[in-house]
Structure formats: structure tokens, C-alpha cells
Amino acid sequence: MGKVLKKWWPLFVLPTVLSFTFGFIIPFFQGAYLSFCKFKTINKATFVGFSNYAAAFQDPEFAHAFWLTAAFAFLSTVLINVIALAIALALTRKGLKGTNAFRTVFFMPNLIGGIVLGYIWQILINAVLSSVGAQLLSLNTTAGFWGMIVLTLWQQVGYMMIIYIAGLQSIPSDYLEAAKVDGANAWQTLWKVKIPNLMSTITICLFLSLTNGFKLFDQNLALTGGDPDHMSEMLALNIYNTFYSRVGAKWMGIGQAKAVIFCILVVCISLVQLKITRSKEVQQ
């Protein structure tokens, strides 16, 4: 099989590998190299060593964006998963009417793009803020942060709920019946039967929402745009602004260095996830 197939590579793999090379591999390595350079365009780059990284770490806006992103990612992960799991548990109850309609509604915001979501919520949150006499989003850091949390919940709770429901439905019904025969109440069934059997689903959902939180860009750009004065600017938007909104050639290199740091951070989170998932598979 493999031997006959092997010489057919121009047809089977070449288109994908070619576009992957131009769309990912070349820009990736070029980007990694440019993070050590001072440049305005890709062709006019001079090597400067680690000075971009030093400048990136000294940039107070970058540090602020990092802590903001970490806080946001952590908080949104906890809230999304607690709420999504609670809804999933309720919607898989026997005898509850209208579960399909509820699922449909909760999942719907997930299909709308981040930019559109951002504007919908910008209009809504500004209306709420002005009706209670608070300052609007463009001047209100606290509202900006919580606005992003609410927006992210609205977008992702339905998504995680769907995954949790699939996980709950794959628990063998014997387990639940056995628990019932043994006289376990709902609370005990949840903690002793359902959650232990859901651990792989929970791992997936936790890391999905964590990496989504770290990578958040469109929603951030559309909802607050980093206002006021970069105070609601998260990592991805900070990198973008370093590239395209700052004046001076040195910022290009610093932006690229920030991007590399950001990339390493996200890859590390994914490696931790991989390790946890693997170790779970061994146990089962």
C-alpha cells in the first residue's frame, strides 16, 4: 500500500505542504529570526541580539497586559467551566422539558464572530453604564474588564456546555443505576460518579478556555480597543499595537520579540495539557 502510494506525493501532499510552507513555516522562522533584529521591512534587518527582548520585558504596558491577560484567562476559565457544567448537568436531567431548545439558544452566540460580538456588547454595556450613571467603556477600566468576562461567558458557555453534555452522555448508565441502588443522593452521585468519569472532558474544556483566554484578540479590539490608555489591553492586542500603532523603527523588533514570548507561553500551556491528558490515558 504505502510503497505504491509513495510516488504519488506531488498530487497528494504537495499542494498542502507548499501552502503550509508559505503560510506557516517560512513566516514562523522569519518571525523568530526578526525578533533578534532591528527592522522596518523584512529585507532591511540588522541583527541586534537580545536587546528587543530586554526592551519588551522593560515595557510597563507589556507587563500590565500580561497580568491582565493572566487574570482574565484564569477568571474566565473558572466561570465558563463552572457555569457550563452546571447547565449541562441540569439539561441532562430526566423529564426536563425543552432541553433541546435551551441547548440551541445557549450555543448560538458561539457562531458569531468576535468583532461582531464585541460591538453588540459595546452597545449594550454602554447603555447599561449610562443608565446607572457610570462612565462609559472608553473611560472605565473596571467595566472593560468585566465586560470582556461577560462577553466571553456569553460566547463560550454554550460551547463548553455542548462538550460537557457529550461527556455526561457517554458515562455508562450502569454506573448511575448502581449508585442509585446503593442509595447515593444527587450530590454524592455528582462528586463520586459523574465528575470522576468526566475528568478527561474537564481537562479538555479547561485548556480550551484557558488558551482561548490567552489568545483573545477580536473581542478585546472591538469591545474596548484597549481603552482607556491601554488599561484594558491584553497580550495579543498589545503585540498588535506595538507593531502597528507605535511610531519608530525599534518597536517592530520589540513587537516581534513580544510575539515570540507570547508564542512560547501558549505552547507551554499546551504542553502541560498534553502531559496531563497523556497521564490520564495511562491510568485508565
Partner: peptide
């Protein structure tokens, strides 16, 4: 190749946005 494909899923877009847009422009 397979390893690189899987790796590319993890990398955030900001890592290559500048170089990619330059490359796309020239091509």
C-alpha cells in the same frame, strides 16, 4: 510534516502576522 501540522495548531497568529503579511504582499 505531521508534527509540524500539529505544532502549527498551537502557535498564536501574532507570532507570524507581520512576516506573513509581508510575504503575502510580495507574492
Amino acid at each position: 510534516v505531521y508534527f509540524l501540522f500539529v505544532f502549527s495548531m498551537v502557535v498564536p497568529f501574532q507570532m507570524l502576522m507581520f512576516t506573513l503579511s509581508g510575504l503575502a504582499d510580495r507574492m
